[in-house]
């Protein structure tokens, strides 16, 4: 071990400002908001891949329901957004329809649609993120991989939510032109940095939707995933609930399960 030198001491002093200690150095609300988003993201790093089954329940304002069942595969990509594959099992007329998405931290995601009747792979334009995902209240930007870089942040307050201390922050889409939102307000618990609730404000800055996330379980002693995500559209009275089950982590998926060759053989 090297003896403590003046040189290393200077280095430490120079580095200090870059590691802000909250109690000593004042942190702006923007920095704190970003720090919360980054910590939440960091805690989910290293999951590798996972598969899960989802039931999507659409409900209109008269209470009429319609269900879709979807199988999902997700692959973590180091240094970029995740790759994901979603396959529809029901309704029966869209059975076998699949979406392949390469999400990116910066720039547009890449997305392909597989139509089983024609055995056709179609590229879809992913620039406009506000479109509805298969008739649900979830838009493509809600369903896409939530990369830290896609938003800017601002911490608002700490409060109690469902009996636990939470951080409340606002986030604003970087690609404001193509997002359906002017801002989102997120509730994240302080203990585990899990997303509990989001309010979405439309481009005219009025409240559009509220997402509530319930039933968190921890997998591999590290990764938290929810059983239920419910989104209510306050302007139309419609809602969509996603019920997740059969989570399975580190199943050995690789890039080769997420290309057009594998897309054409999905079932």
């Amino acid at each position: 071990m090297k003896p403590f030198s003046l040189k290393t001491f200077t280095c430490y002093c120079l580095l200090l400002p870059f590691f802000p200690i909250p109690s000593v150095i004042a942190e702006t609300p923007e920095e704190k908001g970003l720090a919360i988003a980054m910590e939440s993201d960091r805690r989910d790093e290293g999951f590798g891949d996972y598969t899960a089954n989802m039931t999507m329940i659409l409900k209109n304002k008269h209470g009429k329901e319609s269900k879709r069942s979807i199988r999902n595969k997700t692959l973590e990509v180091k240094g970029d957004g995740d790759k994901s594959l979603s396959v529809f099992d029901t309704p029966r007329d869209v059975k076998g329809t699949a979406f392949l998405t390469f999400s990116h931290k910066v720039g547009d995601d890449e997305q392909w649609l597989y139509l089983p009747a024609l055995k056709r792979v179609k590229r879809i334009n992913s620039r406009n993120k506000s479109g509805s995902f298969m008739g649900s209240e979830f838009s493509y930007e809600d369903i896409a991989s939530q990369e830290v870089e896609k938003y800017t942040y601002k911490f608002i307050r700490e409060e109690e939510f469902q009996g636990q201390p939470v951080y409340v922050s606002e986030s604003y889409p970087v690609d404001a032109k193509n997002s359906g939102y002017s801002k989102r307000i997120s509730w994240v618990d302080k203990a585990e940095y899990r997303l509990l609730k989001v309010e979405f404000y439309d481009r005219k800055k009025s409240l559009l939707k509220t997402l509530t996330v319930d039933g968190y379980h921890q997998y591999l002693n590290k990764y938290w995933r929810a059983d239920s995500m419910s989104i209510v559209n306050h302007q139309t009275g419609k809602s969509t609930t996603l019920l997740w089950k059969d989570y399975s982590f580190q199943t050995g998926l690789s890039d080769k399960d997420f290309n057009s060759t594998s897309l054409k053989r999905v079932r």
Binding site: D108, E110, R123, N125, S126, R127, N128
Partner: peptide, 9 residues
């Protein structure tokens, strides 16, 4: 050929 360019395909 299929190409995305902004909002265009």
């Amino acid at each position: 050929l299929q190409m995305t360019a902004g909002e265009w395909l």
